[in-house]
Design a protein around this nucleic acid. Structure first.
Length: 476
DNA sequence: ATGTTC
């Protein structure tokens, strides 16, 4: 047994290449597993403690999992997966994250690099002009009827009022519609914040990126997905904006008030029993925010389609849209039995293999597409779910590069000019509202995405299909 | 991540 931890008794056992086990100890109800290497393990001391805390929560089943991009987060680590029994278990806002259904959407255009290389600056500029970006950015104010329809019915509700096409639906996780979701469980404050932020990008690590398919690893699957090398791809990374943030804030407060004497190792791990009235209300409110985030990406897609039509007389089709901050009711194999659980994926992506019933016909042979973005100026990947991953971590995979430096730490250590000149040298066009964001989101503040994907692919958490490189990026 | 310490 190797001792990697900083505290006494903090034992971690290497199982195979890239798999580390923390056998249950003290209050832990199950073991924990982390998918990383020796170097990665040394960078995540706080996240390891957080994962052990998660493994001690009531009703957790099988094990707690840390994806290759795991790092410190609010209560639960980001890059963490934990499933709870629906009868005995809990639901926790900290296990979802403040940005409910933060996620990634990938659009394919019929354009190749040569078609756009002379117009790249203009393309970026036009998208930057049409999509509101930055903290506090707003769009049009939706009326109550449309807003209710959107948060309860998701993307279907948005298509009804002209944002996109019915064929978009099967290329979105859960068809962009999660239930139960009732506006009755949303506070006025969340409603007021939410209805004028639909169709805005936000800030932080959120971005719109113009990318090119640099390399294809599996031609057969790429054919099915309709992608070729040198093709122009557009990636949208955003979430539920102030709406999801308000839902999380509201329910953390309600849970604190209801369960004052709860003994938990970290007060950020506040939860409600899943079956309790408050647990069910948070589930419904969280689903409203999840639907909101899918629609946010749908409306931004609508804006991008307008730009592509104007500039190139062209359009864009969805490849896929994934959620990477969410809790869901799913069925998984536990002790050789099918069991219904409330699975929390925080900074982790669902990666269903071909054999899952939930997969639409279109992806039945290849598995669910998975999108893993890099950080600003680095590569991103398209992958597919595998049947093997069900036995590894409830069909879950990584969600991004994962932070290495905290935001404040990045500002202290990194220099804006250096970051910008490096991006410029790589030929990447950057449009940004806020210089501070550029420093916080610099590649040096993140882990190496190629390493994250190597581990992910090696373990079959998901299988890599294509690598995309950025040509231009829009940030808040 | 966030009307960035409602």
């Amino acid at each position: 047994m190797l001792n990697f931890g900083t505290k006494e008794g903090d034992f971690i056992r290497k199982i195979t290449k890239y798999v580390f086990e923390i056998p249950k100890e003290k209050n832990m109800k199950v073991d924990a597993y982390i998918f990383t290497d020796e170097k990665g393990l040394k960078e995540i001391t706080e996240a390891i403690e957080q994962l052990k805390n998660v493994a001690s929560l009531p009703g957790i089943v099988k094990a707690a999992y840390g994806m290759p991009d795991i790092h410190w987060g609010y209560g639960f680590p980001i890059g963490g997966v934990a499933a709870f029994d629906v009868e005995e278990g809990i639901i926790s806002p900290g296990g979802v994250g403040f940005d409910i259904n933060c996620g990634v959407r990938l659009l394919k255009t019929p354009l190749l690099y040569n078609d756009v290389k002379k117009h790249l600056e203009k393309l970026i500029q036009k998208i930057y002009e049409i999509v509101p970006v930055g903290v506090g950015s707003t769009s049009k104010k939706f009326n109550k009827k449309d807003f209710k329809n959107i948060i309860e019915k998701g993307v279907k509700g948005a298509i009804e009022i002209g944002y996109g096409y019915p064929e978009d639906l099967e290329c979105i996780e859960d068809n962009g519609h999660i239930t139960p979701a009732s506006i009755k469980d949303i506070s006025n404050k969340a409603y007021e914040r939410g209805r004028e932020e639909l169709g805005t990008l936000g800030a932080g690590n959120h971005f719109i990126e113009i990318q090119m398919i640099e390399q294809i690893y599996d031609k057969k699957v790429a054919n099915k997905l309709g992608i070729v090398e040198n093709q122009i791809i557009i990636m949208i990374h955003t979430g539920s904006r102030g709406f999801g943030h308000q839902v999380a804030t509201d329910y953390i407060q309600l849970m604190r008030n209801s369960f004052k004497n709860l003994s938990i190792p970290d007060k950020q791990l506040i939860y409600a029993p899943f079956k309790s009235e408050l647990g069910q209300k948070y589930f419904s409110a969280m689903n409203c925010a999840a639907n909101y985030a899918f629609v946010n990406r749908q409306i931004i897609t609508h804006y991008i389609r307008i730009v592509l039509s104007e500039l190139f007389n062209s359009s864009a089709q969805l490849i896929y849209d994934v959620a990477h901050n969410i809790a869901k009711l799913e069925t998984h194999i536990i002790n050789n039995e099918l069991k219904k659980v409330i699975i929390h994926r925080k900074g982790a992506t669902r990666a269903f293999g071909p054999n899952r019933n939930e997969i639409p016909q279109k992806f039945k042979q290849i598995g669910q597409p998975v999108i893993i973005p890099g950080d600003m100026g680095t590569a991103s990947y398209l992958l597919v779910g595998t049947d093997e991953s069900e036995n590894i971590a409830f069909s879950s995979t990584a969600h991004g590069a994962g932070r290495l430096l905290g935001r404040r730490q990045a500002i202290r250590q990194l220099k804006l000019n250096k970051i910008l000149s490096k991006l410029h040298k790589s030929g990447i066009i950057v449009k940004s509202k806020n210089k501070k964001t550029i420093i916080e989101e610099a590649p040096e503040a993140y882990k190496d995405i190629d390493k994250v994907i190597e581990i992910t692919n090696y373990l079959s958490l998901s299988k890599k299909i294509a690598r995309m490189i950025p040509l231009g990026v829009i940030k808040g």
